[in-house]
Amino acid sequence: MKYVLEHGILSATYSNKSLPISKDSTKGYTPLDLLVSSIVGCSQIVFTQILEKKRISYDSLTIDVQIERAEAGAKQLKKVHIHYTLTGVTATQEAIEKALHLVPKHCTIAQSVKGSIEIEETCSIVNES
């Protein structure tokens, strides 16, 4: 990966893809955006892999995220709450929650921030009639 700073925007380039990073969210992703996205992205990948291995199918998956930050100092990220909503699920709520319970110990990013950022993951199933 290569990083170049131009006009206050840090561009990360990897495999012919560019990722703009900036303190100004109108010009690029903020470092906080990237940290939260890394946590959520890793968790989602692990969760859907576990569902696939358990042969649990679903029609759609959406993710809502809430964060908590410290009020003073560097205002570090304290907590990330990830809520998955699945539709058209072929399993029970209990089976989905068991799968979700496996995510933290298999997610590289969750393990990397363990002890400094609390990650809470919940899920709900929406059965469309």
Rank of each mutant, 00 (worst) to 15 (best):
G88S: 06
I109L: 06
G88Q: 04
A110F: 00
Q93A: 11
P104K: 10
L100Q: 04
T92V: 10
A95I: 05
V113T: 09
A99D: 03
T90M: 01
H106M: 13
T108L: 13
Q111F: 02
A95K: 12
T108H: 11
I117N: 08
C107M: 10
H106Q: 14
V113L: 04
K105W: 07
K98V: 02
I96G: 02
G115T: 02
H101L: 07
A110C: 00
V113G: 06
L102W: 07
Q111D: 09
T108W: 13
T90A: 04
Q111C: 06
V103T: 01
E97W: 08
P104W: 13
P104M: 12
L100T: 01
A91W: 06
A95P: 00
P104R: 08
A110D: 03
G88T: 01
V103R: 02
V103P: 09
S112W: 07
K114R: 12
A91M: 05
C107L: 09
T90K: 03
Q93G: 04
E118V: 14
K98Q: 12
T92F: 12
I109F: 12
L100I: 09
A95C: 01
E97K: 15
A95Q: 11
I109W: 13
E94G: 05
G115V: 03
I109C: 08
G115I: 02
K98D: 08
L102E: 15
A110R: 00
S116Y: 13
K105A: 13
